[in-house]
């Protein structure tokens, strides 16, 4: 009894540095952002310490400068919608590509499995910025892809990929694919392949085995991978900045704009909070899905 109690106490002590770090690194800045989102913008930057809900108002609505009429802030909503759409697409595509990949790795003999996993993590070794520029080199009008397509006579004029949503999508899928593959691999690795045989034995087709047996059982891995891809996609900054150009902004870029040229820190803070709330909603959905129907 005393042993258990004292080990709990020392457990707390051991986690103290992490708790302090979390408090200073996460809770502190978060609090600042919340506070800023209820203040007035300073003239050149920073904030003026007057309480107002104007930033939150401006996230969703805009007031005409001349006649004061209020309408939906279309520009903001468009950017949020594009971010959500691109992030969902990224999640879907990384799943479609990542699931077969993870399945392939999990069904290799243990000796070669480590090599495949290692290959999956190689992109992490290079700076994100450099990798993203490399992609832009490939897809730009005089880039590798277009040059090759032109040479083989498959196209007459270069396809404009760079500075489109497609470019952003390609970049994000590439960057976040490992985050999908790794949790999927972990889930499939634990999966008992005897269950597939049991499914076939009970007259299930390939598709039915996948849908009725494999997918429900590896679902925690699917959900984890989707969250790991969706959340950072939503806040992506570097990829849309380089591959999307100035026009195809995502939330991350728009927020940065408010703290930079826009000189509207409170609006930037409010936008950040909204982003955080969307992520939080996604996480809550994750917790519900994984805890309500856990196998066993």
């Amino acid at each position: 009894m005393t042993g258990a109690a004292s080990s709990t106490r020392s457990g707390w002590l051991l986690s103290l540095p992490a708790l302090v770090l979390l408090a200073l690194g996460a809770a502190g800045p978060l609090l600042i952002v919340v506070v800023y989102s209820f203040l007035e913008p300073g003239e050149y930057s920073g904030v003026v310490w007057n309480f107002t809900t104007e930033p939150w108002f401006r996230v969703f609505l805009e007031r005409d400068i001349f006649d004061g009429t209020v309408s939906l802030a279309d520009a903001h909503l468009t950017i949020f919608w594009r971010s959500v759409k691109l992030s969902l697409l990224t999640t879907l595509i990384t799943f479609a590509v990542g699931f077969p990949t993870a399945w392939f790795i999990a069904t290799r003999p243990p000796s070669s499995r480590a090599i495949w996993l290692f290959l999956i993590t190689i992109p992490f070794w290079t700076n994100l910025l450099i990798r993203t520029f490399a992609i832009s080199e490939i897809i730009r009008n005089q880039g590798l892809l277009n040059t090759a397509l032109l040479k083989f006579g498959l196209i007459e004029t270069p396809i404009q990929i760079l500075y489109t949503d497609t470019a952003v999508l390609i970049g994000m899928v590439y960057v976040y694919l490992p985050l999908m593959v790794l949790p999927l691999f972990a889930a499939i690795d634990r999966f008992d392949f005897k269950l597939v045989e049991a499914g076939y034995d009970l007259y299930a087709s390939r598709w039915k085995v996948l849908r009725r047996i494999v997918l429900p059982i590896v679902r925690p891995g699917i959900v984890a991978g989707s969250i790991l891809v969706f959340v950072p996609s939503l806040g992506a900054y570097v990829t849309p900045r380089i591959l999307g150009g100035g026009k195809n902004m995502m939330v991350g870029n728009f927020i940065e704009l408010q703290f930079g040229q826009g000189r509207n820190w409170p609006l930037g803070a409010a936008l950040s909070m909204l982003l955080l709330l969307i992520v939080l909603a996604a996480l809550l959905a994750y917790v519900r899905v994984t805890s309500s129907e856990r196998p066993q």
Binding site: K194, L195, E197, A198
Partner: peptide
């Protein structure tokens, strides 16, 4: 195997962990 009029009781049972006993029995 899914086209053979044969069913197997596996050594490790290989029951579907996400289904109830009733759902397991109904599967085939």
């Amino acid at each position: 195997p899914n086209k053979r009029p044969v069913n197997t009781v596996f050594q490790s049972y290989a029951l579907f962990p996400h289904l109830t006993a009733r759902e397991n029995i109904a599967f085939g």
